[in-house]
Design a protein around this nucleic acid. Structure first.
Length: 674
RNA sequence: GGCAGCGUAGCUCAGUCGGUUAGAGCAGUGGAAUCAUAAUCCACGUGUCGGGGGUUCGAUUCCCUCCGCUGCUACCA
């Protein structure tokens, strides 16, 4: 009893996936989103609705510039080449974009300028002066990624100006030690620069109304975004100093739009390009008065841009607002975050090349769909589950139902769907299921779609089994004919329901039935019709097919499991912790801190500074001269601007008092403990 | 430490805006059948819905607290 099926259908639907950055290859995380989007789009197409699927490469910004520099080609060449690769990778998984464009286009420049102009007219842009590193040699301001230096926290060398890859600290480039320009290796100087900011605060009431007054966002995301607004909307810097790969801001000498300004605008400019190529009008999609539904699919990492900045941009430029933003979580591999170093980073092209099975892309689509609900939890891609899920549902359940039915018709009914009337009770169940599945598709509850399809397949197998047509053939062939007609029609319905998810499997059934299926074809209609050549629609994976792509991931998992059993570690594990005896040479309170003492300790010949959180329990004079146990190889940390190069061992007694560990008899300082 | 989220069968997850015996798929055990892709069908689950407390006629669902995990963050044990 679903109502969605009859609810008002918009005249047009515009659907987008997040624009992949032109610096990276497409990986399975991208595909996780693309499959979800593509299934949604194909469902609406199947229903005969006007739906356009728009995507593009996000091409601007510093990382692109750097990558091009490294490869000794121009940024334009780089993004052009990447776009081809991206299109090829998506095509390998049947992602059916109506257009896959680029943000480095004249259309995008036009809309970026237009939106900026409107923000300005609405008095939302202000200028502020900040100081930034400037390279006198290269005559340019240096963005974060153009500066390398010492991490202010852990002192690691050769870190970028925004984040330390060694200790994970984030900071401003002006905090770094020994900053160098990445191009010429000279030291930059600080220089004043004016920048443009959007005053989001002025749009607070609009944003609150948009976020809480519509159902554009899932509930948890809505709460999340609301709390950001409650915390106070900060000004958003939208300019970067040139040279910068992007669009120059009109009316400025050498300022460019920050990549995150023009990236989402790519949704509009790609639509524009599509419309020009197909004789349509972009206003019909993006005009504020149009009844087109705009649906974005994005990951939870970019909610900030899509739920705050983007609506503000659209609203002020008088464009249509998104009616739905589906936010999904991340894709893990074998329970682990995708990570290049751990080998759990699977590229789309690797999956295509290394999985030795012609239906591999379809199976992945199916597997993804079987896990997708409109929630923001992370999903896990898991080899054994991929194997069993596709084998049981697609091969054993649906594939086998198809095969046992079609082969039976071939053998006993002269390769025809027999001339008999189907079982009406089954037809009714399928029709009801059709309404239910439609409502799941509308809500993007693909997991439920798959479950329902699976249940119908089971129903078919049970019906077949209970009817036992092989027995009926001996006594009353007409009864067997009814069973066959019923099962063929059920299989046709399953093919319809699966079409958005596994178009090729459906295509195979369509060929054998001699039909192209639309949504309406899920109702029973076939009898007394010749069948094409029977062909198995699914050949399941064999485990070896997947070994290569998952090799690295499985290995990393095994290592973890071996080390993690029952919380015990082996001796080598323990040896990674470097414990040493040290003598406290000096101690003083850290200003403005209630818990911290600044200590100088002697570790053999070395002296180190350690910031210890023991001020509540030890006075400086209590511990000077004492011997303590120190973790000597702990990653340095910065507390109150002071570097801490180790940690003291202490235990808390029942009164909550912190007690330092001392050797029972004096030992030489710097001696290893263990 | 703070903020947020999560914790439901061996595994992957649904669900519950308080109310009959809490569900699905997979895995497991036993059986049937042989049209079929060693596929199918049938039967089998006393899960303290993380622990404890509270509100209520009634809580897995609401509130508090504790434990555990994840993310962000922090005055680092």
């Amino acid at each position: 009893m679903s109502s969605s099926d009859t609810s008002a259908v918009p005249s047009r639907i515009l659907v987008t996936s997040a624009l992949p950055y032109a610096n990276n290859n497409i990986h399975l995380g991208h595909l996780f989103e693309a499959v979800q989007t593509d299934v949604f789009v194909r469902y609406h197409r199947l229903r005969g609705r006007t739906v356009r699927y728009v995507c593009a490469d996000d091409t601007h910004g510093t990382p692109i510039e750097l990558a091009a520099l490294r490869q000794k080609i121009s940024p334009e060449q780089l993004v052009e080449q990447t776009q081809k690769e991206h299109m090829r990778d998506y095509a390998g998984f049947n992602i059916s974009f109506d257009i896959f464009y680029t943000t480095n286009s004249e259309e995008n420049r036009k809309y970026a300028e237009l939106i900026y102009q409107k923000l300005k007219e609405n008095d939302l842009i202000i200028e502020k002066e900040i100081s930034q590193y400037y390279c006198e040699h290269d005559k340019r301001f240096l963005p974060d990624r153009f500066i390398i230096g010492k991490c202010p926290r852990c002192k690691a060398e050769k870190q970028y100006g925004d984040v330390c890859e060694s200790c994970g600290a984030t900071y401003d480039p002006t905090e770094m030690g020994e900053p160098k320009c990445i191009i010429c290796n000279n030291a930059p100087v600080l220089k004043q620069s004016r920048h443009l900011y959007v005053q989001l605060k002025k749009c607070e009431s609009f944003l609150r109304e948009y976020i809480n007054g519509t159902d554009a966002l899932q509930e948890d995301i809505r709460n999340f975004v609301t709390s950001w607004i409650d915390d106070g909307l900060r000004e958003w810097c939208i300019s970067r100093d040139g040279p910068y790969f992007g669009f120059r801001i009109p009316g400025t000498e050498n300022k460019f739009f920050y990549v995150w300004l023009d990236a989402p605008i790519g949704y509009i400019s790609s639509t524009d390009r599509y419309c020009k190529d197909h004789g349509e009008r972009v206003e019909d999609y993006w005009g504020s008065g149009s009844d087109t539904q705009i649906v974005h699919f994005i990951g939870k990492d970019i909610v900030y841009f899509h739920a705050l900045f983007w609506p503000v941009m659209l609203k002020n430029a008088n464009f249509n607002l998104p009616s739905k933003i589906f936010v999904h979580g991340f894709l893990n591999i074998e329970g682990e975050k995708m990570s290049k170093s751990r080998g759990t980073f699977i590229l789309a092209k690797d999956y295509l090349e290394k999985v030795n099975h012609p239906q591999a892309p379809e199976f992945l689509r199916f597997y993804f769909a079987s896990k997708q609900m409109p929630n923001t939890g992370d999903a896990d891609l898991n080899k054994s589950e991929l194997l069993t899920k596709t084998a049981t549902t697609l091969a054993n359940n649906i594939g086998n139902l198809h095969h046992r039915t079609f082969v039976f018709c071939d053998r006993y009914f002269e390769k025809k769907i027999p001339d008999a009337y189907w079982d009406e009770s089954v037809a009714t169940i399928v029709e009801e299921a059709g309404r239910e599945i439609a409502s799941y598709y509308e809500k993007c509850e693909l997991k439920s779609v798959v479950e329902k399809i699976h249940a119908l397949g089971s129903l078919g197998n049970k019906y077949y089994q209970d009817s036992a047509p092989w027995e009926q053939m001996k006594t009353d062939p007409q009864k067997a004919a009814v069973v066959m007609v019923t099962c063929v029609n059920l299989i046709k319905a399953l093919a319809v329901f699966l079409k958005p998810i596994t178009p090729e499997i459906t295509g195979s059934i369509e060929r054998q039935l001699g039909l192209i299926l639309k949504w309406e074809d899920h109702t029973f209609s076939l009898k007394n019709k010749p069948l094409g050549v029977t062909d198995k629609i699914v050949k399941p994976f064999e485990e070896a097919d997947l070994d290569q792509v998952f090799a690295a991931a499985s290995q990393s998992k095994n290592q973890q499991e071996n080390s993690g059993t029952s919380g015990l570690i082996d001796i080598n594990h323990f040896k990674t912790v470097d414990l040493k005896i040290a003598v406290v040479k000096s101690a003083e309170k850290v200003e403005k801190s209630s818990k911290l003492l600044k200590l100088q300790v002697e570790l053999g010949k070395e002296t180190r500074q350690i910031i210890a959180g023991i001020a509540a329990h030890y006075k400086p004079e209590d511990i000077i001269g004492k011997q303590v146990v120190v973790v000597a190889n702990l990653k340095p940390a910065t507390l109150f601007g002071l570097t801490s190069e180790g940690m003291l061992l202490a235990a808390q007694n029942s009164g909550g008092e912190l007690v330092l560990l001392h050797p029972a008899k004096p030992v030489t300082s710097g001696v290893k403990v263990g």
